[in-house]
Amino acid sequence: MKFGWDEIRLFTAVAEAGGLTGASTNTGMSPATLGRHIASLENNLGSSLFLRSPRGYQLTELGEDLLAHAQNVSNSMSALQHWSDQLNVKPTVRISAGPWTSSFLSQHMAELWQGETDLMIELVTGLERVDIGHRHAEIGIRNARPHEQWLAGRKLGEVAYALYARADGDIDHKPCYIGVTDTLSGARSAQWLNQNHSENIVLRASDSMSVREMAASGVGQAVLPCFIGDQDSRLQRSSPPIDALRTEQWLVMHHEERHRPVIRRVADRLAHLLQNHQSLFEATKKADPNSPPNSL
């Protein structure tokens, strides 16, 4: 006999739901209509696919065999539908970065996305490392060389950190420090502050932006990346760059994806942007805090 896609789809829905009622919710069809479709399919096969009971529909041996084939067809149809949907969707390049790097990239987004109608860029911001191997992002900015064999990495430079305080404040009088909590507490900068100034931490915050705002208000000193602190006219360095906190900066992509033209286009622009500002990231030259972000 010849199978139709609707027959396969409805049979799979009933089998996976274990009955007509659950399948009705998933398909939008009434239980009676679904029952007629299943009965018609069984009549055409000349054998039962389900054992009916008050507890639901249980697959027969033939039903189990058919479900295995049906699920393969369903997966193929879903993949085909996804492929079809992508034909009418702009290619999207997702860039994974931490909060501070995402803030910098946002300021310079005109250098990454140049008004193209055939490209969409998404910033995936978070402290947790996004899984590029499973295509949760196309490009990542990381602080260490990738060790996964399926990832390609390119070192761009280094990132310096220092203590910052309010620009017009008295940083020598009663030194107080602003710490972090929750997910930020595992960061190297948080551990360094706890190891060196734990007795003088007077405030804590669970997000980076709040830490910066507290420092700018004058209540204490905070550890910040120099490319953030040096751009903020409200802040001044209250320490030299901290050698123990200096990290590398890597651009990371999947080996199989990195040669796709749209990803390569964004990756090249991203590398050019970050490398052009290495003096800011490495704290070898301070930015003019009164100049707009794009003129760094």
Rank of each mutant, 00 (worst) to 15 (best):
Y57K: 04
L51M: 04
P99W: 00
I263F: 14
S185D: 14
A70S: 15
D172I: 04
N75H: 15
L112W: 00
L245W: 08
L59Q: 10
Q58E: 14
N194F: 01
L49R: 11
Y161L: 00
R212S: 08
T101M: 06
N276R: 12
H272V: 12
F227K: 08
H255L: 13
G35N: 10
E213K: 13
S102E: 04
L193K: 02
L20V: 15
R264P: 05
G140R: 03
G98K: 04
P293K: 02
K285W: 04
G169D: 00
E128P: 03
S206E: 10
R36P: 10
L123M: 00
G19V: 12
Q221S: 14
L67A: 04
P293R: 00
R234Q: 07
E111I: 02
H134W: 01
Q86Y: 07
D6F: 13
N294Q: 04
M109V: 11
W113E: 06
D232E: 13
S84N: 04
E42L: 13
M214W: 11
E64C: 02
N26R: 14
H37V: 13
S74N: 13
V180D: 05
R204N: 05
A23L: 11
R204P: 02
A68M: 09
R135G: 10
E213N: 15
A167L: 11
E61T: 05
G229M: 13
S48G: 09
P91G: 03
T92V: 05
R9G: 11
E248N: 07
A271R: 00
L203Y: 08
V252G: 00
A205N: 13
T60C: 08
Q107M: 06
H82Y: 14
L251I: 15
E122K: 12
N43G: 12
N196W: 02
Q221C: 06
G133R: 00
C226M: 05
G28C: 08
T33M: 01
N196M: 05
A39M: 11
G169M: 07
G186F: 13
N196S: 07
W100T: 10
R258H: 01
R55E: 12
D168W: 10
W5P: 08
H259I: 05
S210G: 12
T33K: 14
W192H: 00
T247G: 09
N143C: 10
S48L: 12
E138W: 09
D230S: 09
H147L: 07
G56Y: 09
L119W: 02
H197Y: 14
A144L: 03
I139Q: 09
L184K: 04
H108N: 03
Q58M: 15
V14F: 08
L49S: 02
V159Q: 07
G4W: 15
P225V: 08
I139N: 09
W100Q: 03
L112D: 06
S189F: 07
G229V: 05
I201T: 08
N194C: 01
K286W: 13
D288H: 06
D288V: 04
I141G: 03
S102R: 02
I242R: 03
I201N: 04
E7V: 09
Q275L: 06
S78L: 09
G220Q: 02
P241L: 03
L59M: 15
A144F: 14
G126S: 03
V202P: 10
V262L: 05
E111H: 07
M109K: 13
A165L: 05
C176H: 00
E282Q: 05
F104Q: 00
I141M: 07
D243Y: 03
M253L: 15
H254L: 13
W150F: 14
G229W: 12
